[in-house]
Nucleic acid binder design. Structure first.
Lengths: 98, 98
DNA sequence: AATAATTATCGTACATTTGCGATGAACGAT
DNA sequence: ATCGTTCATCGCAAATGTACGATAATTATT
């Protein structure tokens, strides 16, 4: 097979994206926190972590883009929670991989 | 709790390292390949991937440093295989996390 | 000794990630 | 209208990741 034609498996691409989202302890902490507290806003998460608010916001953005969390505006706060559908998908992909 | 004193959980640090190792499709492909073929050398892996030999070597190094694979020199080749102990640990950490 | 085979490492280029402070946007309360 | 609260985004700096070609290291073969 020619190198040019090679395509990574779709499952591997998806799994790599999830793994990347999980590859920082702050993001693991956020997910862990959200899975306990069910529903909480940015401020609570900032208080949970040793980094600046802007940095937390960036991590939240990445988790959201990876599909692992959802944000809901309730002005002036934003509530976050686990995206259960993608969470399940990620869980299954990891399980299948190992 | 003061920000200075915050420490990430040991499990999260370990899991983040494993996740980082899994965060690239080439490395997932390598691990998948190794789990099938049990034991094979660098050349086989290079043939499996669309990237240069030096790049593959770099990915192998990262997987080795993450503890997920082991290399055995059988000059002039190097055989690689899954590090079963850490593989199991990673599997359990992911399972526990989800 | 010279060559070939196999793999790791080096140097380089470019992109991405991580973190911070400052600023902006939205809105409720005064 | 102004202020305070809450959160996201911007701009920057430093570090890390990804890929490549070239080169080095090791050793078996000629």
């Amino acid at each position: 097979m020619k190198k040019e034609d090679f395509k990574y498996q779709e499952d591997h691409l998806k799994l790599a994206r999830f793994a990347k989202a999980l590859s920082h302890p702050a993001r693991l902490h956020i997910l862990n926190f959200l899975s306990c507290c069910d529903r909480c806003y940015t401020g609570n998460i900032v208080d949970e972590l040793p980094i600046a608010q802007s940095s937390v916001s960036q991590h939240l953005k990445e988790l959201k883009e990876a599909g692992l969390i959802q944000g809901t505006i309730e002005t002036p706060k934003v509530y976050y929670c686990i995206d259960k559908e993608n969470w399940k998908l990620a869980k299954e992909l990891f399980k299948e991989f190992f």
